[in-house]
Nucleic acid binder design. Structure first.
Length: 624
DNA sequence: ATTAGGG
DNA sequence: CCCTAAT
């Protein structure tokens, strides 16, 4: 299909190329692009055959390729509604269409806009003008929702009766069945299958009426594309993009999706047993097939007319689509369409993201007005899972309110309290370093919670173990001095008089860490701190590459200072907490020397010289 | 995002 | 350790 694809690309309206022209004529003209909705809802570019067919149709209809400079294949663009193709007749108004994605954008039509009279009011027995497009047209005729008489009546000459033969070559939709209103409920299985075929362009062997109805309904329903409008569907109401605001956190799931519209005819999707979801989300009952394509169209139109409030189904989520796809795959084999290269479903991503976000937001967000400093800081109850120690967050929070630490502490605590008792221990432990509860005890549950969270909220909880190793990592420390207690994080920050408070937590370097650092430098070279950090300090989340660098700098300084006097007083000085063993300093010096001379990359150098051990270094340092 | 340097 | 500038 590759070749075909290419051809089509060429033959189809060169949207991108005509952009300029389009923009100028956007006022009214419409450009269509041949596409077919694949079974799984993807938009598939029309095949060459399809285009040919359409061309014929166009000729019959005397459609004039208006916007298409390239006359090669005039198929695509027809000045007005008429020509269109596929089954997604209700496209969005030109103006809003994004040209960036011509392939996906597919067809567009004004028909749904002002051209189409208020269908609701019109009960006009007209026929669907959006000919060509099977699904929609038929949908229009089908009485899905309580509305009857769905019909299009576009003032502009619409070429009706132009069955969209454009679809896959093998697809011979029978629109006769779609004429007039149709009540799916009254159809026989066979009829439903016919309808299905007409709708999706492929046969189905499914005998389940309910299933068929649902699929057809959904397919049709979702044929309408809102993505191009400035409106979105929220809480079953169409609102202007931007005007919408997340109101009820609870309902977010339904409404928060800012791009509801993009439901590009994902029609074909098999609405197996999962389709309920859609209904649920839309607050519809399973049996109530509320939104008909017609309705959708109406909405589009109404939007322009009055920004009215129409109800619409929620755009399917990515997951939903995926599931449908899966079902589809298994439930029946797709015709040629499947082989046709499928264009990526445009809204797949956008679909997913909002949903995910919404999900995560779904969880009650605990915030509280912090009275600190009277500035009313809001402390959100973020994820319970923290990559780094809570105290870091803690500190960040404090930054907002330099003053009154205690207050902040309490606030934070209380916030966490809300999250649940289990984590409390951990929290306190880390934050306030009070609890004596062994981390291990609460760890497990915590992790579980995390996983759960991830599952539902899509949050990424990784490296949880990092927190753990913090206490364990140093176990192999040979030199471990008692003082190097990790736990002694002096979380208590020291408010600095002038520039706020800094240095909340000092993390005294342990000898072990120093050694690791030194070795890391030896291995990877000074300056490659991120490397060293990753490899040698993977277990020390609290040591950043910058820290390493700083420490190295200090070591360097120290080493140069001490070296001269090394002879007499190796470790005589008991100064601060971490008297760095002379040997180490020596090595630092050595390394510094080397690094200074040859470039840090001394994979060979390291092995050749000192890597073997401190003893060597000592010896060396001796004569250095 | 890393790195280097100053504070 | 923090912050900033340069990459």
């Amino acid at each position: 299909m590759e070749a075909n694809e290419a051809e089509i690309e060429d033959s189809v309206v060169p949207v991108t190329n005509t952009l300029g022209a389009l923009e100028k004529e956007i006022a009214d003209p419409v450009v269509y692009k041949l596409v077919r909705v694949d079974g799984d809802g993807r938009l598939v570019p029309a095949t060459h055959d399809e285009i040919m067919v359409v061309e014929d149709l166009l000729e019959d209809d005397k459609c004039e390729p208006k916007l298409v400079p390239d006359t090669r294949q005039t198929t695509e663009s027809c000045k007005t509604e008429g020509c269109l193709m596929e089954r997604n007749p209700f496209q969005a108004p030109e103006g809003k269409l994004e040209y960036e994605n011509p392939e996906v954008v597919a067809e567009k039509s004004n028909a749904s806009v002002d051209k189409v009279p208020d269908l609701e009011k019109i009960g006009a027995p007209e026929k669907v003008t959006v000919h060509g497009s099977a699904p929609c047209s038929e949908l229009s005729n089908i009485d899905l929702s309580g509305r009857t008489e769905i019909s299009f009546n576009s003032e502009d000459a619409l070429n009706e009766d132009t069955p969209s033969t454009s679809a896959s070559s093998s697809w011979k939709p029978d629109f006769s069945k779609l004429e007039g209103k149709i009540c799916l409920d009254n159809l026989t299985v066979k009829e439903l299958q016919e309808t299905f075929k007409a709708t999706f362009g492929r046969e189905t062997s499914v005998k389940d009426k309910q299933w068929l109805k649902r699929r057809i309904t959904m397919g049709l329903t979702n044929s309408c594309d809102f993505s191009c409008t400035t409106f979105i569907i929220r809480d079953n109401l169409v609102v202007r993009k931007g005007e919408e605001q997340i109101s009820h956190p609870v309902k977010v799931r339904i409404s928060a999706d800012p791009e509801v519209g993009v439901a590009h005819s994902y029609s074909g999707g098999s609405l197996g047993d999962h389709d309920n979801r859609v209904n649920d989300d839309a607050n519809f009952s399973g049996t109530d097939v509320p939104s008909s394509a017609f309705e959708s169209c109406n909405v589009t139109k109404d939007l322009y007319a009055e920004q009215g409030t129409a109800k619409r189904v929620r755009k399917p989520t990515k997951r939903y689509i995926e599931e449908l796809s899966e079902i589809e795959e298994t439930s029946e084999k797709l015709p040629s369409s499947d082989k046709v290269s499928r264009y990526r479903f445009p809204c797949t991503e956008s679909l997913m993201r909002p949903t995910t976000i919404v999900r995560s937001n779904a969880r009650p967000l605990f915030t509280r007005q912090d009275s600190l400093g009277g500035s009313g800081v809001q402390i959100p109850f973020v994820s319970r899972i923290r990559r780094s120690r809570p105290r870091e967050n803690f500190t960040s929070l404090l930054k907002l309110q330099p003053s009154d630490m205690d207050m902040a502490t309490r606030q934070v605590r209380s916030v966490f309290d809300v999250s649940g008792p289990q984590e409390d221990d951990k929290r306190n432990n880390d934050l306030i370093k009070t609890s004596s509860t062994p981390p291990g005890l609460t760890k497990q549950p915590l992790i579980a919670a995390c996983e759960k969270d991830e599952h539902y909220s899509g949050m990424r909880i990784v490296e949880l173990e990092n927190d753990m190793d913090e206490d364990n990592s140093d176990d192999n420390v040979e030199l471990s001095d008692g003082f190097e207690n990790n736990s002694d994080d002096n979380v208590i920050s020291v408010p600095t008089p002038k520039g706020g408070m800094r240095r909340k937590h000092h993390r005294p370097w342990t000898i072990d860490e120093v050694v690791k650092l030194v070795e890391g430098v030896a291995r990877y070279g000074a300056g490659r701190w991120s490397e060293i950090k990753r490899l040698a300090f993977a277990s020390c989340p609290y040591r950043t590459s910058v820290d390493l660098k700083d420490k190295w700098r200090n070591l360097l300084k120290a080493s140069f200072v001490q070296l001269p006097a090394e002879k007499g007083m190796l470790n005589s000085r008991k100064q601060a907490s971490v008297p760095i063993p002379a040997p180490i300093l020596s090595r630092v010096r050595e390394l510094a020397d080397m690094q200074g001379q040859f470039q840090p990359i001394l994979s060979t150098g390291k092995s050749s010289g000192h890597i073997s051990g401190r003893s060597v270094n000592e010896a060396r340092s001796g004569y250095l």
